[in-house]
Structures are given as C-alpha cells and as structure tokens.
Amino acid sequence: MAQPPTSSVSADSGASLVSYGLEELLATAGERLGEEITPRTVRLYATEGLIDRPGKDGRRAVYGQRHLLQLLLVRSLARRGLSLSAIAPLVVCSDQDLQEQWQQLDDGTSASSPPDARTEALAYLQGIQDSTAQSTAQATDHPSALLPLLGSVLSSRSASLRASRTGSRSSASSSRWHRFSLAPGVELHLSESASIPPPGSRREAWLQRLIDRLREQLDQQD
C-alpha cells in the first residue's frame, strides 16, 4: 500500500514540499518513465551515491522531489547506454539543474509547458547566431544615408546598430541590396552597407517597427 504524502520533511533531506514513500516514488517514476522500477534499483542507486540518502520519518524512508528527479535522470541516462559511473557526476547538482537536465532529456513528457515558446525559440536561434556570426559581425557607428528617411526609428537605436555580415565583400564595393516588400507597390531597398541591426531577432524587430511605421504613413494617405 502506498502511504499518503506527508507534509513534514526535514530540510536536510534535500526535498522540497512534496514527499513520497518508497512505493509512491516507484509508482511516480515508473509512470513518468513508462517502465517498472523496483525497490532494488532505488537501493542500488542510493548505495552508489546516484540518489541522495532518503530522509526518515520514524522508521520509514521519505523521498522528495530531488530524489524523484535524480531517479528519473539516472534511469533515462542509463537507458541511453551511459554507465552508472558516467552518470554519477551529473546528478550531484542543485535541484534546479536537475530539473533542467530532466526537462531537456525528457521529450516533453513533463507537465510543465514552456513559459513563452516564442521567446525560447528566439533565444535559442540567437544563441546559434551569436556563436556562428561572432567573427563576422562588426560594430559601426557611422550614420547611413537612410537616417533622414527613417528619422527617430533609426537614430534612437543607432548607437547599438551593427553592420550586416561583411563576409567576403567589402562594404565599399558592395552593390548588393536587400529588398523588402512593404505593401503592394511599395518596396524598401536597403544597401548592404546601410547600418542596420545584424540578421536575427534584432533586425526583425527593427524591420517590423519600420514596416509598421511606414504602413501607418501609407494608411494615412488613403
């Protein structure tokens, strides 16, 4: 019989608010992992130091959220073919790190959904971009010919603007233009040498603002 969760847990057990008896721990982990976990497995992991020692409630062993996360991580990693000695260093970390590791490992089976998918996706891509474009991006401060046209949109941000990827072409000899269609019959052409934010979320945001602004202008003419 599974014991009902108890609310009193000693702080040094490393557990947060939730606590489990052994059978509850096995059931919860088993359900999350889709496999049976035996008490022997848990005892083995505890002996090997892969799971913290349980707390005590009288003679009964008490497990917390941290134990559950450790167990989930160890099993998932073991199933991927990692040896226990390789796993050991991965499970001695803060509760938050454990949580993050598990979320990365688990293919979305955890109930919690990301706070804002868009922000996460953009941050992810930005990270890739920063790491691949680091060498090519270059800061420039000189105002571009667009400044008068774009007014405050550009000048308010010009301090942080960067040139687009210079790559193999020098900006002086560049005859390359980026074209953006804003509305039927209206296109924006930007020379590659224009100072606009680098490709990525900043440029997108910048362009979006620009487009919105120009659309406003166009709409007003109707």
Partner: peptide, 18 residues
C-alpha cells in the same frame, strides 16, 4: 545553407504561434 535555414527559422520564430 545553414545560414539560410537560420534566417528562415528566425522568421518563423518571430511569429511562433502555438
């Protein structure tokens, strides 16, 4: 190719809609 994919991904991500 990768940069092209990345730019396309950015476009989708900017308007990511669950």
């Amino acid at each position: 190719l990768f940069d092209g994919w990345l730019a396309g991904a950015m476009q989708v991500a900017n308007h990511l809609d669950a």
